[in-house]
């Protein structure tokens, strides 16, 4: 099973087994990883599941669609070139070892 690694702003890492198809947002909530809020339920109505994706994985992700792009304009922490909403990242075998850094704030 692929793994996803969450890195909190203080550098602490949490590694989670990620069933293929599960989203990075849902995995965080289901495993009690703090730092992802995901208030709207993964519906692209808020930007509180913002993550910074490690550069080496960026190209393996599906491109940002319009709704995600617009929502990323309202993140609590600065949007960077590797910003994504984790509700839009579904785990695949190719994403094994995916490292996402969590922002200081989500709201």
């Amino acid at each position: 099973m692929p793994k996803v690694i969450y890195q909190s702003p203080d550098g602490a890492r949490t590694e989670i087994d990620a069933p293929v198809g599960a989203t990075v947002r849902n995995l965080a909530l289901a495993n009690g990883v703090d730092g992802i809020v995901g208030e709207c339920g993964g519906e692209l109505m808020c930007a509180s599941c913002h993550v910074y994706v490690d550069e080496q994985f960026l190209e393996r992700l599906p491109p940002v669609q319009e709704e995600e792009d617009e929502m990323l304009e309202s993140t609590a922490c600065e949007r960077l070139s590797n910003s994504r909403l984790s509700c839009q990242i579904k785990m695949t075998d190719e994403l094994d070892g995916l490292l996402v850094r969590l922002p200081e704030e989500q709201l």
Binding site: L44, E66, E67, E70, M71, E73, S74
Partner: peptide
């Protein structure tokens, strides 16, 4: 028009 929605909230 999700961009309008985000703009309206701001």
């Amino acid at each position: 028009r999700p961009g309008d929605h985000v703009a309206a909230r701001k």
